[in-house]
Structures are given as C-alpha cells and as structure tokens.
Nucleic acid binder design. Structure first.
Lengths: 152, 152
DNA sequence: GCACGATCGTTGAAGTTGTCAATCATTGAA
DNA sequence: TTCAATGATTGACAACTTCAACGATCGTGC
C-alpha cells in the first residue's frame, strides 16, 4: 500500500519538492490543520485565534490593521470580531483620535482563553517541527519573518 | 500615513511575529498572491499549475497521489484535471496495472505551458525572497522540506 | 472461483471562505 | 468649506472545502 506522504514523494519524484512556494504551501497546510485540531476544543480556529492574539497586544490594533496583518479583506475581520465579541472575548473600543476606527482589545476572559489556546497550539507545533533542531527552528522563524515582513 | 506592513508590525508589536505558524501562513499568503498574479496571464492558478507540474513528472501521478501531495480532497482534483484536460494540457491515461486509477500526464502543449509558468513564477519568487541570501534561501527550502515531508 | 472489504474516481450537497462593489461616517488637505 | 480618501460595514456572488454516497475495480481469504 502506498499511503504515506513520503511514499508519494518517492513515486512522483522531484517535480515540485524543490519549489519553495510549494513547500511553503504544504507546510502551511499541515500547520493549519494541526493548529485547527488543537484549537477545536476551545471553539477557536486559526483565524479567530490570530485575531484574539492580536487583540491581546499591549497596543490593541484597529480592524484595518488586523486585516493587513492577517492579509484578510476588512469585511472578513468584521465577522471575526463580531463572533469574538459575542463570546465576550474581545471588545470594540472607540479610538479617541479617530472616530472612524475601532480598536479591538481583549477582555480578561479573552486574555485567559488566549493563554490556553497558545498552550494548545504549542503542543501541536512541537510535533510538526520535530525534524528540526531548536537552532534550526529559530533560524526558520527568522527567515520566515524576513519573507513575511520585508524591508524592516 | 500608516500603510506598509512593517508599520503595522511596529504598531501592533510582537503579538504573533514570533509564532512560526503565523509567519508560515503570512509568507504563504504572500507567495500565493504573487504567484497567482504571475500565472494569471497564462490562465493558471497556483493549484492548476501545481497539478500541471506534477503531470509533467517522469512518472506521472494518479489523481489520488496528486490529492495527497497537494493536500486536497480527491474531488477537488477531479475538477482541476477536468479543466486542464479540457484545455488540452493534460490527459487521463489508463493505468494497465490498475484499471481504477487514472494516471495524469501532460501533453506536449502542457509541458510547454508548464515551462512558461515556471519562468513566470520564478520571477515573482525572486522578489519575494529578496531579503534572503542564496544560501539562506537554500537553507529555508531544506528546512521547509523537512517540515512538509516528515520522516524521510 | 467467489464473496468480502477496501480503494479510486466521480458526483452532488452543504458549509466556509474569498472577493468586490456600495454605503455611511469621519478625516485631512486644498 | 468642500472634496477626495479612509475605516467599518453590508450584501451579493464566486471559489474553495468537506463530506457522504456511488459504481467500478482490486486484493484477500475461503
């Protein structure tokens, strides 16, 4: 039986496995499904967790900033924040300096859940990056950051 | 005006930018939108290009193998192959050893378009990874491969 | 040789996500 | 004081994902 991914690689050969973009896509797909599995008991997904995490920042972001950071359409952020707000994890605060913008901040309950969620995803992460040494993993993080946030 | 991603990072702080999974997601989103833009003139997307590339392999894969490699549901592969086949880029070949499976191979036209597409994406790639030295980029590729294809 | 469960491709339905244009309130600049 | 630009929101629509079901075929065990 040919079932494991490594077998498929062997069978298909090196058509795409040297392609950084493809590897990025596949690694991301694996990371996301693992993280979603880990977050499911908390009724969070990768998306809502990301928004919650950003809302926990010292300087809470506006919805527009969340959209840009997460590369989402602003209208998607509306739905995500709506949901988190209904669950009392997050709240929209008026920005005194610009009445158009909503600043999205976490409630105490939100901060708490965010901590639980962070622990849950970290466990899943460890499994995913098991093939990498701590130093390699750190190096991967650094390189991904230069790609994800250029010109810093 | 706060508009560039790096400004947003500065504003939001380090809520997620140490999170490998998040960086992976963001880097992938950027890579995909760049690749899709580059492929649009050829009427290809990242997905269809990936399938086409796999079909160009020396040992053409079955649809099931494509699905597993690309982490797609088999039913999605049906639609992708349908489209490429209608355009004469790819064909379903009977596998003599198993009449259930379709082997998906590229036609000469398909091989040709795949080459054009590879060139187009490569140009976009160079821009995306401009912050990395060739050695770093190679190292990134190697590490992503370990994550994307574990236990090799 | 034949029944049985498993696998491959396919279809269709249902849910989720992505994309886009339009709108309103507000802002900053001419 | 206008006027273009921006942030949030809504609604419509396309695209993608997920899942269960099906027919054809395979391999195993009897």
């Amino acid at each position: 039986m040919v079932d494991r991914a490594s077998d498929v690689v062997e069978a298909v050969g090196s058509a795409l496995d040297a392609d950084v973009n493809f590897l990025l896509a596949r690694a991301n797909a694996m990371s996301m499904s693992a993280a979603n599995r880990a977050l499911a008991p908390l009724e969070l997904k990768v998306r809502s967790y990301s928004v919650l995490a950003l809302a926990c920042a010292a300087a809470p972001p506006s919805q527009r900033e969340i959209a840009e950071y997460l590369r989402l359409d602003p209208s998607q952020v509306v739905a995500l924040v709506d949901d988190l707000q209904k669950r009392g994890l997050v709240e929209r605060r008026a920005d005194p300096s610009d009445r158009r913008t909503n600043v999205v901040g976490a409630t105490p309950t939100g901060v708490e859940l965010r901590a639980e969620a962070a622990a849950a995803t970290q466990a899943a992460e460890s499994e995913l990056y098991v093939g990498l040494s701590p130093a390699q993993r750190q190096s991967l993080t650094r390189m991904l950051r230069t790609v994800a946030f250029p010109t810093e």
